[in-house]
Structures are given as C-alpha cells and as structure tokens.
C-alpha cells in the first residue's frame, strides 16, 4: 500500500479533487472492469469445465475426431490473435491522438472479428450438416454453448468497437479519455485469451 500513501501524502492532494481521487490511481471504470473480467473467468471456466467433464461421454456421433478441421480452426485462431494486435495498436494511436490511424485499426479489429465469426459459422454449418446439433449429444450441447457464448462475446465486442470508432471520429475520445478504449481493449483481449484456452483444450488436446 506504499502507492496509496504516496498518492495522499501531500495534504492538499485530496482536497483539490476529493470526489475524483482513487486510492490506486486506477480509474474506477478500469478497476471495475478488471473485476468483471475476474468474474468472466469463472463464467467461461464453468463452460469449459462442462465441456471437459463431458469429453468422451457422447453416446452417438458425430464425435470431435470426425469433425474438427484443425487447419481451418488454426486460421480463425490466428486471425483472432492478430485482431488483438490491432486492438492494442488502436489504443496506442488513441494515446498519440492520431484519430484516423486509431479508427483504422479499430476497423481492422472489427474486420478480423467478422472474419473469425464467418469462419466459425462456416464450421458450425458443416457440423450441423454432419448431424451435430444442440440436442444430438452431450458433445453437441457443451460444444455449441461454449463456443456460441464465446462468439456472442466477439459480436458484442465488434459493436462496442464500432461505437468507439464513431466516438473517436466525433472527437469525443481525446487521449485523456483513452481508458474508454483501453477497457474495450481489455474486453477484446480477454475474449482472445478465452479462445486461446478453447483452442487448446477443445481442439488440440485429444
């Protein structure tokens, strides 16, 4: 807590902006969002647990080995990874007050998110064609609900990015308000790391 003490050591440090100061120097929005992400860990943790618990319990096919096309998934995984890179660059340029570059990278994020969703829905259609549905087996149920929840997160993130791009375009997000972009970035990266885990546990580990 040395940090806390440092913030408040000077007697007037709090008097001037007592409604604004935070103990940690982190904005409430960002701290609250990290807390929310901790909560999301458990949310996805439960979904992933269920998938793992049900691994091998499907009594009728198709089974994972019949369906998964690792190269296809590798492509979408790589795209999502690079969208994270685009996201961090967008934030970087918001800090630098280079609005148009930032908007450009945000569009890149949206585009890559869209490509990811497109590829994933393509495989959904393929799986459905092979007879894997929500109700066909425990594998179907746990697979679709886990990856579907992840896709819903990606979709929400894309809408969020679009709104941010618009706000940056309007000039409403100067560098001093960059944590609006930073928090959106945290969300996007979090969705990315969830996919890192899903990619390994669901697709790669037999």
């Amino acid at each position: 807590m040395a940090h806390t003490a440092a913030v408040h050591d000077s007697p007037d440090a709090h008097a001037s902006h007592d409604a604004h100061a935070t103990n940690t120097g982190i904005s409430n929005f960002k701290l609250g969002f990290w807390t929310f992400l901790a909560s999301e860990c458990l949310f996805f943790g439960t979904l992933i647990s269920t998938y793992m618990v049900y691994k091998g319990s499907a009594i009728v096919g198709p089974y994972p080995a019949d369906l998964f096309d690792i190269l296809h998934t590798t492509l979408s995984t790589t795209i999502l990874l690079f969208s994270s890179l685009a996201m961090v660059l967008a934030l970087h340029y918001v800090h630098e007050a280079k609005r148009n570059v930032a908007i450009g990278w945000l569009f890149a994020v949206i585009a890559m998110g869209g490509a990811f969703l497109y590829l994933e829905f393509q495989s959904y259609l393929k799986y459905i064609g092979y007879g894997l549905t929500l109700g066909s087996s425990t594998f179907g149920s746990s697979y679709y609900v886990l990856t579907g929840t992840h896709k819903a997160h990606v979709a929400v993130g894309m809408i969020w990015m679009a709104i941010l791009a618009w706000r940056i375009h309007q000039g409403k997000i100067p560098p001093s308000k960059s944590d609006q972009v930073e928090v959106a970035g945290l969300y996007w990266h979090f969705v990315d790391i969830i996919w890192i885990v899903i990619f390994t546990l669901v697709y790669l580990i037999p």
Binding site: H17, A19, H20, A21, T22, G25, I26, S27, N28, F29, K30, G32, S176, K177, S178, D179, Q180
Partner: peptide, 9 residues
C-alpha cells in the same frame, strides 16, 4: 462517471 481520474491525473 469513472473517467474522472484520468482527467485530473
């Protein structure tokens, strides 16, 4: 409501 810190610091 939560961006106020960054304004000041």
């Amino acid at each position: 409501e939560s961006t106020r810190v960054t304004d000041s610091k």
